[in-house]
Nucleic acid binder design. Sequence first.
DNA 1: GCCGTTTTCGGCCCGACTGTTTTCAGTCG
Length: 578
Amino acid sequence: MPITNAEIAEILREYADLLEIKGANEFRIRAYRTAARNIDNLTRSVAQMVSTGEDLSTLPGIGQDLATKAAEIVRSGRLPELEQLKKEIPSDLIGISRLAGLGPKRTGALHRELGITRIDQLEEAVQQQKVRLLPGFGARTEQRVAEDLSRERDTPVGSKRYRLSVMEEIAQPLIEYLSAIDGVRQVTIAGSYRRKKETVKDLDILVTHHAKCDVMQWFVEYEDVEDIVSQGDTRSAVRLRYGVQVDLRAVPQNSYGAALHYFTGSKAHNIAVRRRGVQHGLKINEYGVFHNGKRIAGETEEEVYATVHLDYVEPELRENTGEIEAAGRGTLPGIVKPDDIRGDLHTHTKATDGRATLREMADAARQRGYEYLAITEHSRHVTVAGGLDASAVEQQIAEIDQLNEQLDDLVLLKGIEVDILEDGTLDLPDEILKKLDLVVCAVHYKLDLPAEKQTERIIRGISNSYPTILAHPTGRIIGRRRASSLDMERLMRAAKQTDTILELNAQPDRLDLTEVHARMAKEMGVMVAISTDAHSGEELNFMRLGVFQARRGWIEPGDVLNTKNHKGVKDWLSRKRK
DNA sequence: GCCGTTTTCGGCCCGACTGTTTTCAGTCG
């Protein structure tokens, strides 16, 4: 497998982290981080670009120097300059610099003054109270480091991120609590939560309130607060008992839009917008947009964008991956909304590993106002889920036909989630697949084949004339299982050629396609289906998570199969069998 | 190290809070 964009980006990030501890020029460090982020968000493989001799310096944020370095990483898998720098600045220092109260500068001082290179040496120095003696340090800083070190020991994951769905559960009661405070006007969650990232590290909450309301005091007294990190008049931070950090910012009402824009980020998007402001002679901060010290906007986000001649940018698009240029040209995509969805094309029932009956699933779909719902059980090879063989499929077909006669406002589509076996053949014979309305195919075993084999296996699977949707293409489970190694570009070309649709699986721990892959599908003209893979009626609600992910991938309603009505879906599905 | 409506050098986003400080650096977002 050639090196992935994520791996290249990681190497550049590590280099940036070490440069920072070393005390290098901050703009040079920023250049490495920008390049890493851009490579992460690229919908093309850098390795492939190198192999076809393309000029990497055409990529945003990559000049001659970084093009050379990136090419070297592709060729050898390493960056010699990084190896060299590691001899000087041990990479364990990066972990140390992430401890509370420490940053690159103080970490550099610990290394220089006390010779600290590892975490156990830092623990010892803290115990001996040597740290507080260093210039710029003191007893309080040493204390904070000691506390964070012991927290690290208890829960080793330093920068834990939470799935968006988990964070929603933590955020909801807190929002209700804050909204109920007398004098509070607006409460909004900003940050990556508002941008609907698949995982969220902390909560950024914005409030506006009447003059007399001491919202900060109320905030730090919330019942789940374990630790007050900081407390001021306009900004406070706490750590909740689940370990989640929450930042609260209070702003005047007429700054609400500017503050919301600022705290929604992303950081890269904000920097780009502000730079645009500077070009127009404007200063943009969380209180508003200023021209020669005079406030000219700030009440709404739309106003802020308008001052720099940009269309309003949906939060999900704010990553500085082309949205600012598009907003300037008036060519932003009209991205898909939850209301655009007319049905679900991947669900299970009690016939395999689902928890609801056919009837219950149908009722849940009707309640959501869907026009259609596909029942797609596992095939026999997935023994743990009680996958269906041909005769069991026949039986379910009969049951669905019968139920369809009773339903007048919903069509149940007869489907299957057939396994693509290791050799690329399908787990059920064509004779049974041809009787179904919809064949979803997927890989459930041998997820760790080498990239070339895995890619060929799947391409062989979708080249069969019956499967029309490839479910959870990479097989990743967030925080638990890596994505299969796949040549995504090749796979998507094959999908395009064979009229195969790629699923964006909306299970909260899958969200597979990623936003980068979703955007790649769009650019390559590959149709996407957003499906919940629901195992109960409740799980149909995961649809919104899938839509959020699609929005982050610039997907428009026309790119999504299940925004079409029943006839539109049928027409699309019949393409392959002709 | 990148980049160009300030174009090949000289800029590079902006502010709050904390702790160590007598005016500010570092961290954080």
